[in-house]
Amino acid sequence: MSTSRLEILNDGGLRHDARRPYELRSLSLSLSPHPTADGSATVTSGLTSVTASVFGPREPRSRAGTSHDRGIVSVEVGVAPWSGTREVRRSRGDKRLTEIAASIRQTFEPVILLHLYPRSEITINIQVISADGGILPTAINATTLALLDAGIALLDYTTSLSVGLHLTQPLLDLSAPEEADLPHLVVASCPASGKVTLAAMETRLHVDRFEEMLRLGVDACRVIRDEMESVVKKKAAEVVRRSQAVIGVPDAR
């Protein structure tokens, strides 16, 4: 992509992967792929695929940093060697991964009702299985689903996506080539209240465009939330149906 410049928007108003500016990549959500975690989820957005596994709330593995009145959240991010990041291979403890982990922790600390879990630890493990732009937003979406799957109390769903800017045209959900070329912003928000829990930029962006992009991002987060909710509720309904079909009227003995 470095030698021949990518055409971000062609004459027909389509992006390099034939999406319109406000079109998201195909999203697929699966719950509980990890059998031994307390909760887990895989989110695949286009060619980016991330699995989040949640362990806990459980006894903290190390005494240090534990709190007597609230739970602590720790996040680890790993990238599979075959994930296709064209950059250098990432290993544990890499600066870039530590930063993503910190962003995820800061995003979820205000959303998880941590006062319900004193002296406990919630460990979130992120594995990037394939990378094609938007690792952080996809990881945030996967983490939300994994936390819900683990039955951990949350204020709301937290959904996230990236918003880029081409000339004056905002683009939603950037792929890797677009991410490399455009100034962009990662928005994470709680759609019910419209609260923004994360707005991260690694590139410079004109201040006049910022508000428009942020609003657009928050709107798009709502769409992702609806998608997540339907998957979560469908699974929940099935589990309830099965257990009630066997028990009958529960414990009415």
Partner: peptide, 20 residues
């Protein structure tokens, strides 16, 4: 009510998710 009359559709209403 007896549990026989309960279909999955009426159960689904009973399920809520975070933030609801």
């Amino acid at each position: 009510d007896n549990d026989l009359g309960i279909g999955p559709s009426s159960l689904r209403k009973d399920i809520v998710s975070a933030g609801e």
